[in-house]
């Protein structure tokens, strides 16, 4: 077997801290939406969203505690999606 079973249980404090971070980031999203950053409006919103997603995946969904197979699978999936969407936009951009 290449990834061992481990039932990792997160403590309530840790979960609460993550929840807090997520709520704060949500607050920042709202706050930023009141400012006009010009070109950076979308990149900023996306950057915050990505940070939040990373926290959810790593802790709530236990990716941080999984073996390499699960992590590789996950990264592979995301890159696949990224390429699919990226190439298509790329075509549209040059039409």
């Amino acid at each position: 077997m290449d990834s061992q079973e481990n039932n990792h249980i997160l403590s309530y404090t840790k979960l609460a801290i993550i929840l807090g971070i997520l709520l704060i980031l949500t607050g920042i999203t709202v706050a930023v939406s009141y400012r006009d950053l010009g070109f950076f409006n979308v990149p900023m919103a996306l950057a915050i969203a990505c940070t939040k997603v990373t926290f959810v995946l790593l802790f709530f969904m236990h990716l941080k505690y999984e073996g390499p197979i699960i992590n590789l699978s996950f990264i592979g999936t995301i890159s696949f999606l990224f390429i699919m969407i990226g190439f298509t936009f790329w075509d549209v951009a040059f039409r």
Binding site: F80, I83, F87, W90, D91, V92, A93, F94, R95
Partner: peptide, 18 residues
């Protein structure tokens, strides 16, 4: 094989760069 799909679309009107 997952990166070549648009070779079915050369005449479809997509961009020359693609």
């Amino acid at each position: 094989g997952s990166l070549v799909w648009a070779h079915h679309m050369y005449t479809s009107g997509m961009s020359d760069v693609s």
